[in-house]
């Protein structure tokens, strides 16, 4: 069994307790219009091609004999600036676990641990479960998830985590469908289960101007989470260029000027991130 990973980042300081290494799983069932990780959307390896600094030397377009280059129609092993790269690499559980355990001594003495993120890790639930089982008891394990997964998959994966960070984006099912491509029924069902599961967890809401940051939506979220901890994450407008690198179009329908002032008083246990 293999997992498709698009990045591993050390010293992540906003993905759970302590200093963490974040593993980004490739592939996501949602299509949030504000997504800032477009290279995590497709569940397949793809070409990540930057243009900034390109010498137009044409080397990457010349035919090559590498097996792995064939699907891309470009040579991945020749760019003098390293601008043409595959994004998405398959790991087996042992290799990835070994990579993460290498820094066990760091996590042991400093706190922190591993965070599974994405994309959406639950799209690769079997691999997640196997990886978490392998690392269980050795590292502090956290997951960042949108919660859109079959209930059985959600339960078997998050039950193996020490911390679950789950998104709550929009409470209205129709609006949720409009902006993320899917309804929120499954997500809310999983969230309800999580609330009573006894597993340490927190919720997160990205503050997308005029979409998620409306008073109506935030009040509904506040109602839902009750006394559970929730983090509100401000919107950032930087996604467009990354979209081009993975040959996607950024349909920017978000106007940062329309950001609503955030009223934390709706919430019982909320933090507004910077």
């Amino acid at each position: 069994m293999q997992g498709l990973i698009f990045d591993i980042k050390e010293f992540s300081t906003n993905d759970g307790d302590g200093v963490r290494t974040t593993v980004f799983f490739k592939g996501c069932p949602l299509r949030c219009i504000w997504c800032h990780n477009p290279e995590g959307l497709s569940p397949n390896p793809e070409l990540y091609e930057r243009t900034e600094g390109c010498l137009d030397c044409g080397l990457c377009r010349a035919p090559c004999a590498h097996e792995e280059c064939r699907t891309f129609g470009r040579c991945l092993h020749v760019c003098p600036k390293n601008l043409v790269r595959p994004v998405g690499r398959y790991y087996d559980v042992d290799t990835l676990a070994a990579r993460l355990l290498r820094q066990k001594s760091f996590f042991d003495s400093m706190g922190g641990g591993i965070t599974l993120s994405g994309g959406e890790p639950l799209l690769q639930a079997d691999f997640c479960e196997a990886l978490l089982t392998r690392l269980s008891g050795q590292l502090h394990l956290a997951i960042e998830t949108c919660g859109y997964a079959a209930h059985e998959d959600f339960v078997r994966v998050v039950s193996r985590c020490d911390l679950v960070m789950m998104d709550l984006k929009l409470m209205d099912p129709n609006t949720h469908r409009t902006y993320t491509g899917v309804g929120n029924e499954q997500i809310l069902a999983n969230a309800k289960w999580l609330k009573t599961s006894g597993i340490p967890h927190l919720f997160r809401t990205p503050l997308i101007p005029d979409i998620t940051d409306t008073e109506e939506n935030l009040r509904a979220i506040a109602n839902f989470v009750g006394t559970d901890r929730i983090e509100l994450l401000p919107y950032n407008t930087l996604a467009a260029a990354k979209y081009a690198a993975v040959h996607r179009t950024f349909t920017d329908r978000i106007d940062p000027e329309h950001a609503h002032p955030i009223d934390l008083s709706f919430f019982q246990n909320a933090v507004l991130r910077k």
């Binding site: 906003n14 993905d15 950032n236 991130r273």
Partner: peptide, 12 residues
């Protein structure tokens, strides 16, 4: 960037 870090030169 906000909740994530990047290598500056890898950003467009």
């Amino acid at each position: 960037i906000w909740g994530w870090s990047a290598y500056f030169v890898e950003l467009d």
